[in-house]
Nucleic acid binder design. Structure first.
Lengths: 226, 226
DNA sequence: CGTGTCGAAGTTGAATTCATAATTACCGAC
DNA sequence: GTCGGTAATTATGAATTCAACTTCGACACG
């Protein structure tokens, strides 16, 4: 067996020394989102730990974190599996995202500072330029939504939405905007910015709600199972 | 056909094969809710593990679960502390509960079966009899709310509300209904049942919203810090 | 030939051990 | 006497070891 080398030999201790199990958790998330670990597949903690060059302890701790996030399921003495999202799960999560984010939009319309709106505007402008780059569009889109949540300023809601968005990524079709939907989504964002700048909470909330309804319809269309 | 009876010779019936770390997590929750472990106090995992008669491994796993639930906070190399709820946290969580549970009430009004409504009615009746027993009232009240969520049938929302209600219990004043509030709360539940039986989603949602607004006002009054 | 039981292999759950970072206590210098 | 630095102590993070359960397969018996 090869000795587990320490690759961080010359690295000065960074100001944010995250725990090993957190790094492992993040790496696991990426592997799940990228489908390297497929939904439904079993996770052999021994094999994975060896692959990562760590012991089983931090691997197990990381898996427990993912389990409470809903990305994996654990059964006593039965091992660990990557979670699966049914079409109905997708519908349910969309409904919650619509509910929570429309409420956030309402609060932002009521209480955002000029700088807050400026940061949203900036993300919106970047989004406009990325209509033809699916991956980049997806990333910026998520940044916009999380920025809105951050401005609204309810840390519990931010945490909840962040977790829900994670499990949404289990769904293969979620990130696959088709062309038409991207342009449409962009228009809805524009309308939202308009409502926010006019300080119209009701309109802002309504726009976000329909934004998610349309997003669900688009995703459902791809699943062929509504 | 041999009896699948397991001769549990001298061993306590482990018909509940829950993982040790889960039992530990539950015990920790109870200690936190009962204020044996006070908000803000440090948790010495070694001492607690010894106290429980277990090793540090399941204790650490349990603490990680509680951390993701928001009941404790963990800092790298700095140990673990019982979480604290500020007055603002209480407000934020109340807002989310109002949002999520009013939405659930809407769905229940739209789609509940007669049996669903009957089970709610039963809890409501029990509640009526417990106006003078604070603790029992509190328990049944929670059962009623969770029953509503269960009927609404969105497992993500149920999980979220369950977790939010856990952190609410960190707040000392939450469970302390004063007399007037208990009667008032009861009346609101009655109104909700009425709206549900009349299949009026809008009214049901509105009633739940105001139910939480009044609950927040009552709690805030006790905190003396609005 | 099918069913059921016993057993071996392998994986998970928990305990123990080891290493390292943080805290504290102590000592010396200013 | 106080401040600062260094060493000792202690608690946490991670690895390793140990134990128990699950699963799979072979063999015996009906």
């Amino acid at each position: 067996m090869s000795a587990p080398e320490k690759p961080s030999a010359g690295r000065p201790p960074s100001l944010a020394p995250r725990a090993l199990y957190e790094q492992v958790a993040e790496r696991l998330r990426q592997q799940i989102f990228s489908r390297e670990l497929e939904p439904g597949s079993r996770i052999d903690e021994q094999k994975l730990a060896e692959e990562y060059g760590i012991s089983r302890t931090p691997m197990r701790e990381a898996l427990k974190v993912l389990a409470t996030e809903g990305l994996v399921t654990m059964q006593m003495r039965r091992g660990c599996h990557v979670a699966e999202m049914s079409a109905d799960d997708v519908r349910q999560v969309y409904r919650l995202l619509a509910l929570l984010e429309s409420d956030a939009a309402m609060e932002v319309a009521e209480r955002a500072t000029e700088e807050d709106l400026a940061s949203l505007r900036q993300l919106q402008e970047r989004l406009e330029k990325q209509v033809r780059q699916r991956d980049a569009f997806f990333v910026t889109n998520e940044q916009f939504h999380l920025r809105l949540l951050t401005i609204a300023g309810n840390r519990w809601r931010l945490q909840i939405v962040t977790d829900l968005r994670k499990v949404m990524k289990l769904n293969r079709h979620h990130s696959l905007f088709h062309k038409g939907r991207m342009a449409e989504s962009l228009a809805e964002h524009r309308a939202l910015m308009e409502a926010l700048e006019q300080r119209d909470p009701v309109a802002a909330a309504a726009i976000v709600r329909t934004h998610f309804e349309k997003g669900l319809a688009a995703a459902a269309g791809m699943i062929h199972d509504v």
